[in-house]
Design a protein around this nucleic acid. Structure first.
Length: 474
DNA sequence: ATCGGCTCGCGCAA
DNA sequence: TGCGCGAAGCCGAT
């Protein structure tokens, strides 16, 4: 057995189907063929029961804010994944639901011939919703496997208060989990006649050159163009990783908070859509650091401790889009300062269009509009300013989440929600009281000017805006 | 340039 | 029960 049992949650009590044609892996969030614990577990189950493995993934047009940017990035990854799965003898069924009247029950139709369903355990957004609703309706075992985290989410019994409370546990557990996952080997190869002809017609073959046409034909928001910078897919993710190892890792410790220096991995879109696994990244970084006598600790702290703190938060928080989940001191200080006068106001529309009096803030918003992500350090400043400029804290939260949902390739992720709520005090501590923010940490333009090269960053974003071409595109 | 104070509460040591 | 310290800071004093 390849996959640690603590990664697996059984979400119903249905019996295995005796006369089944295959084991079904429903690929929801770990959209990759390598280093994928859910896929590996499905392969193990298929081998044990003498069956073939079918991988199903769908892309619907009906999730909130579905648009060209998100669709393109997701579809970019499909052709190479189809090829990888074919190579190992798994079936691959990709279904693009382009119109709202297209059938939306393909999963159930495929499950009707399956011994069991294996899927990704993901604590937010659509996978979390499906994993709460589908198991009771499916009639066969429904197993959710944590293929996002290095140390499985199930290893934590409760929400950690801050990074400092989860860090010792992570370091204790890591040696047991920082190990490569062996490639899957299937004993029983896939044959297309294992699914009925009528279902096969819903399968969508994606080729790279046809992606723009597929996207254009979907009933989605066509006003948000693809990212200027990020193309989806596991191969692309590995190109970013290679660039990071060779040109950035040695600068990471000193320059990761200098956005214009590009010393970070820029992998967040790929990690979010599961095009690359955090485990693979951590192992490659560790190995490269060893070979080149570099210190990877600061990067691994971000990739492992802070990323998995976010998954821990999302797993245990009732509602990641609400202030209810914040510590008492945050709620207390916000209610005390709820009616402080906000001297500057911007509407959600002005913010979205990057029309404020702050040239740095406008540049960060433009980075979101164009690239589909904001550098981590400036993202905090971006959020803090939205608090300062919104009539209420609730409105600020709403705007931050909305802008991420529409524009960010790394939105809808445990990390995004945690980053946003950090602006309201989550995983932070109280600071000197001041207007509007109360005891929430404040960040200022002058601080950014003192610590980072604002001019270089604004110049970079202005060039990107003018030409639409990103020199940092890989 | 550098430093302390600001302020809360978790989790561990005792 | 006491104590140390924490996700990226700010501000004013020296």
């Amino acid at each position: 057995m390849n996959v640690q049992p603590e990664r697996i949650r059984s979400l119903n009590e249905a019996p295995f189907r005796e006369k089944a044609s295959y084991v079904l892996y429903w690929c929801q969030s770990s959209r990759r063929a390598e280093s994928n614990h859910a896929l590996a577990h499905a392969a193990d189950l298929a081998n044990e029961s003498g069956l073939a493995l079918l991988v199903y993934e769908g892309l619907t047009c009906s999730y909130p804010n579905a648009n060209d940017r998100l669709h393109t990035f997701i579809l970019d990854a499909v052709p190479e994944r189809a090829k990888s799965l074919k190579r190992v003898g798994a079936g691959h069924f990709f279904y693009l639901r382009g119109k709202k009247k297209d059938p939306d029950d393909l999963l159930y139709k495929l499950a009707a011939k399956a011994r069991c369903v294996v899927t990704d355990d993901f604590p937010v957004f659509i996978p979390a919703l499906y994993n709460s609703r589908v198991p009771a309706k499916i009639g066969i075992p429904y197993l959710a496997v944590d293929s996002s985290c290095i140390v499985p989410m199930n290893k934590h019994e409760k929400r950690a208060y801050g990074a400092y409370t989860i860090r010792p546990k992570m370091h204790r557990e890591l040696p047991g989990y920082l190990k490569p996952l062996s490639p899957i080997q299937l004993k029983h190869l896939w044959r297309d006649d294992l699914i009925p002809e009528t279902l096969r017609s819903h399968r969508t073959e994606i080729t790279a050159s046809e992606i723009p046409a597929f996207v254009a034909a979907c009933e989605i928001d066509h006003t948000i163009p693809p990212s200027t910078t990020f193309t989806g897919g596991s191969a692309q993710a590995r190109k970013h990783l290679k660039l990071f190892l060779e040109q950035r890792l040695r600068r990471y410790a000193n320059e990761s908070n200098q956005p214009s220096k590009h010393a970070t991995s820029e992998l967040s879109p790929y990690l979010h859509f599961g095009h690359i696994s955090a485990l693979e990244v951590a192992l490659r970084v560790e190995e490269y650091a060893k070979e080149h006598s570099l210190l990877p600790d600061k990067f691994l702290e971000e990739l492992i401790v802070r990323r998995e703190l976010a998954f821990n938060f999302a797993r245990f928080a009732e509602d990641v889009e609400s202030f209810d989940v914040l510590p008492d001191w945050c709620k207390r200080t916000m209610s005390k300062h709820a009616h402080d006068k906000r001297p500057e106001h911007y509407t959600a529309a002005q913010l979205a269009k990057a029309e404020t009096c702050d040239p740095l803030w406008n540049a960060t918003q433009k980075e979101l509009l164009l690239r589909g992500r904001i550098h981590g350090y400036y993202r905090m400043y971006w959020g803090k300013k939205i608090i300062e400029w919104s009539p209420t804290y609730e409105e600020a939260l709403r705007v931050m989440i909305h802008l991420h949902h529409v524009y960010a390739l790394d939105g809808r992720d445990p990390n995004t929600y945690t980053n946003i709520l950090w602006c309201f005090g989550l995983h932070d501590r109280p600071w000197a009281e001041r207007p509007i923010f109360g005891q929430l940490r404040y960040m200022s333009f002058d601080g950014m000017k003192r610590k980072t090269d604002i001019d270089a960053y604004i110049k970079e974003i202005t060039y990107l805006e003018r030409t639409g071409k990103d020199p940092f595109r890989i």
